[in-house]
Amino acid sequence: MSLDILLERAQLLHDTRDFFYRQQVMEVETPALSQGATTDPYIDSFAVEDHDGIRYLQTSAEYPMKRLLAAGSGDIFQICKVWRMGEIGRHHHPEFTMLEWYRVAYRYKDLMQEVDTLLQRLIPHLAKTSDFISYQDAFQKILRFNPHTASHSVLMACLREQSIDLVSTKALDNSAILDILMTHCIEPSFSQQHLTFIYDYPACQKALSCLSQDETPVAQRFEVYLGEVELGNAYQEEVSAKKNRQQLQSDLECRLSQNKASAPVDERFLQALEVGMPECAGIAIGLDRVLMCRCQKNSLEDIIALPWVVA
C-alpha cells in the first residue's frame, strides 16, 4: 500500500464531511456495540462477551440512527466502522467503513439525485450522466421477464437458460434466484464509466423499506453501482412500528429456517418507532468500495491499510 492511498482516504473522508456540512446535515455518532443485533437473515453479527452479557458489533448504524431521527434529530449522517461475519472477498471485507445518512421528508427518488451528486464528487473520473433503471426494466431488457410476477418455474428455467450451474442442497426461493440472476446476468451489464441506479425492488426484498401502493407493490428502494460494484443501498424508510416489527419477526423466522442463530431484536429501536419516526429516506454506502473506485483498484485489499488477514 502506498502513501498515496492513505492520502486518498483522508481526502475522501474530508470531501464527504465537507459535502454534508455544507448541506447542514449533522454528523452523529452512535454505539458500535449494542444489546440488539441485526435480524437480517443473510447478515451475521460478531458477538462480543462483556462481564454481564453479550454485546453485538453493529452491521450498520440503521437502528440507532433511526432512534435519533425519532428523537427529532433532523437530517443526520455518520461515518463509522461496521462488521459482518464471514463476508470476505474482492469486494467484501468483514470490517468496513460505512457512510449512512437520512434526509427527513425526502422521497427516495430525491435521495437518488443527492447520491448521484455526492458520488460524482467522490469519484472524480466518472462520466457525468448516470443510468437510472427500474429493477423491472433491467430484468425485462436482459432476461425478458417481469421479476415482480415471474413464477418459480419461470425463474428456474431462466437459471438453466443462462447456464448457471448451481450447487445447493436446499431448494431456492424466488428471492434467492433473483439475487443470482442479478449478480450473474444483470450486474455485468452495468457501465464501468458511470453510475447505475436500480430502483423499485421486488416486494419480497423490501427489508425495512416502504411498499408502494401499486397493484403489484414494489419495495421503494434503490441501489447504486459502478460497474458490478454495489456502492450503496437506500430505502424510503418504513416508519410504521407495526410493519417494522413484522419484518424483524419474519427475518427471525427466516434465520430459524436456515438453522442460523437467532438475533436479539433491538426493542429500543421498535419503541422509538412507536413514539414516531418522521417520513424520511436513508442510504448506507460502503466507503471502502467508493475509495477503491476512486483509486481505480480492483480489490478492497488494495485500499485498506491493514487488511483482515494481517489485522
Binding site: 437480517d40 463476508e87 472477498g89 442479478m182 426484498q205 448506507a284 460502503g286
Partner: peptide
C-alpha cells in the same frame, strides 16, 4: 469469488 448483494443471499 464471494458475491453478495447488500441485502440478499451470498454465493
Amino acid at each position: 469469488e464471494f458475491v453478495k448483494p447488500g441485502k440478499g443471499q451470498a454465493f
